[in-house]
């Protein structure tokens, strides 16, 4: 029995993967003209940010977190797109067209993402490319602006993450601080996740890629109309995304959202309910009909007994 199952599972897998196996042998080639296509979207913070949002929403599910090489266990394995080898091998045009056309397990994103978005993803990937010249030039073009940031970045542990809410405005304020010369200092540019705890996972409420400002603050509004159980109670969570630098730092805050009006399925008197909840009108109708009919029968039986007694 079990064997059978394994065999079927395997055969399903095999059938699924058969076309892919042939493909893994050869590289996925994109035509020369397409390879040479230039990225029309200028490399900028905004574009990288947008690319990151799109990457997280569309690519991450298979390719995994950037740099962590934790994509889905498919065959062939989806490449970690931030691997230097990948970035070196593929031109902007080739990444863009792979996204656009798709191939076998890699779906086409032509209909799903706009041109701009696809190019932004390329920019996002390039932002992690050590050999990317544009990236360097962008970085070089604004050393002055970057300078103060570097200073702040010296802040060390212990880190403090605080979360406070303005319940009237449904606004949450997250402050991220580190320690510098024994004093609390704001940390700028740290990416913080802020979300509302849900049964399976947290529902993000911050803008994707939101970073702390120069005061170490992220302000974000959360949906006060979000249903949250019968009492509307919920928990707001904030944590620092870059755990490698800062470690696991989280903050929690109780908030009150909109109360849900749950269906009390178990207590509903309905035709579909269990037998202890069947509708009273049905009960009365049913019992009275049965009672009437059987009492007529009982009467007839009594009559028969009377006939019998008359016969004596």
């Amino acid at each position: 029995m079990k064997k059978n199952n394994i065999i079927t599972n395997f055969s399903v897998l095999l059938i699924l993967l058969m076309p892919l196996m042939g493909w893994t042998q050869s590289e996925w080639m994109v035509s020369d003209t397409k390879q040479k296509e230039k990225n029309p979207v200028a490399f900028s913070d905004a574009s990288v940010k947008d690319g990151k949002v799109q990457f997280m929403a569309n690519c991450k599910s298979c390719h995994g977190d950037p740099g962590k090489d934790n994509g889905l266990p498919l065959v062939p394995k989806p490449t970690d797109l931030t691997l230097q080898a990948f970035l070196d091998l593929n031109t902007d045009g080739s990444i863009y067209h792979k996204m656009t056309d798709g191939q076998i397990t890699m779906p086409s994103y032509k209909a799903i993402l706009s041109d701009q978005q696809r190019w932004s993803i390329v920019n996002f990937l390039r932002s992690m490319d050590k050999n990317h010249k544009v990236a360097e030039s962008v970085a070089a073009s604004k050393p002055q602006k970057e300078a103060p940031k570097e200073e702040v970045a010296i802040a060390e542990a212990p880190y403090y993450l605080s979360l406070s809410v303005d319940a009237a405005k449904n606004e949450a304020t997250t402050v991220f601080q580190g320690t510098l010369n024994g004093e609390k200092t704001a940390i700028e540019g740290a990416e913080i996740f802020i979300g509302i705890k849900r049964y399976f996972n947290n529902l993000p409420v911050m803008d994707a890629g939101a970073t702390t400002n120069s005061q170490g603050i992220i302000k974000t509004s959360y949906p006060g109309d979000l249903l949250s159980g019968e009492d509307g109670k919920a928990e707001l969570i904030a944590y620092v995304i870059d755990t490698e630098t800062y470690g696991e730092i989280t903050a929690h805050q109780e908030i009150t959202l909109s109360p849900a009006h749950p269906n009390h399925f178990k207590d509903t008197r309905a035709l579909w309910a269990d037998r202890s909840h069947f509708p009273w009108w049905l009960m009365i109708t049913y019992l009275s009909i049965v009672l009437i009919v059987w009492s007529v029968m009982a009467k007839v039986v009594i009559n028969m007994l009377k006939i019998k007694s008359l016969g004596k």
Binding site: I196, R198, Y199, F200, L226, L227
Partner: peptide, 11 residues
């Protein structure tokens, strides 16, 4: 999949 009383579903 998720809970309608939380108005949230998880992919």
């Amino acid at each position: 999949f998720g809970d309608l009383n939380e108005d949230a579903v998880t992919n």
